[in-house]
Design a protein around this nucleic acid. Structure first.
Lengths: 171, 171
DNA sequence: TTGGAATGTCAACAAGGCTGACATAAACTG
DNA sequence: CAGTTTATGTCAGCCTTGTTGACATTCCAA
């Protein structure tokens, strides 16, 4: 277990030195505490509107992929249709989401944000992006690249599929 | 908004070029999908034992800081005492956690894992560390440093306090 | 001795997961 | 065309884990 050579940062190194249980524990707690920060701002906004995180997730992914189907959303969110449906129903009733019957396949429902839905989405994502932006700025470009690399490696393969999607533009 | 100079990786640069909304959205979704992976393995184990994430969190932080008080745990976990108490009660009843009355201050309860508690903790953290280790190995030392830097910057200040604690050893 | 802190407990409620069952419409398949 | 599968919605009921409010106990400290 003792590694005498090459500390973290060894060029091109797959140094195992930092993979002690203690270092891994730090990584685990970093995820735990950071995720709390990550959700804190949206949570406050959602509460004002009487919604929860589940609504945020739905709104986020409908905004990301306008016209997405219920089934697609299900596979991204990894919940049951009953859970998702409960959330979608309230969003539709409240006029934030519109559900259109498919053209080609009329069994499918395609989901879109209404104008009101876009307002909430913007409020939520503006707050969440602000926190992310501050963290990115503070950490610098190299750290951001590392952040993305580690997180991507931590995903389940199926989630990585969803992550890769859409306007891969940057990075 | 247009930044002509210095791409990502500009030496020492606080380059804003990569902080487009699109890049920030990627960061947000990275957090979302990665957190799912992060909790997936422990969730499966917990289910076998009839516990939930709340139990995992309690067991984790009691293991990290043996003898911690209920109040300290409350401030780390950020839940109400009623929520925590419900979880602690089952863990104590099931013989995974021991609650000892304080010596100096007999109002306080100091929490410890029993042998059985350590067994569950080990099972959970072994699985979670394995995922973290694979991700770290795959990403490399530099990425890991960046990962930690960004996550720390993302935390609320109070959470950062808790994060910094204990055997700062590595980094 | 009194106020407040630390803890525990009871009750009730809500969000958001889950399963199971069932209904409908549309599409596909032989 | 008949039968099956797919996509979706809905009802009912359960669980975990969060919440608030109220109240009791213990005991440190001023």
């Amino acid at each position: 277990m003792v590694e005498g050579s090459g500390g973290p940062g060894t060029p091109g190194g797959e140094s195992l030195l930092f993979l002690t249980d203690e270092q891994l524990r730090k990584g685990i707690e970093a995820m735990f505490f950071a995720y709390r920060g990550f959700t804190a701002d949206p949570d406050r906004i959602l509460e004002k509107h009487g919604y929860g995180r589940a609504h945020h997730r739905a709104v986020h992914f409908i905004n990301r992929s306008p016209g997405t189907t219920v089934n697609n959303l299900l596979s991204i969110l990894g919940v049951t249709k009953q859970s998702l449906n409960r959330v979608l129903r309230t969003l539709i009733e409240d006029g934030l989401v519109e559900s259109r019957v498919g053209n080609r396949d009329k069994r499918e429902r395609h989901l879109y944000l209404t104008e009101e839905g876009h307002v909430l989405e913007a409020e939520l994502s503006t707050a969440q992006r602000a926190r992310m932006r501050d963290a990115f700025r503070h950490a610098g470009p190299e750290a951001v690249a590392g952040f993305r690399t580690v997180l991507e490696a931590m995903m389940d393969p199926e989630m990585r599929r969803h992550y890769g999607r859409l306007k891969e533009g940057g990075q």
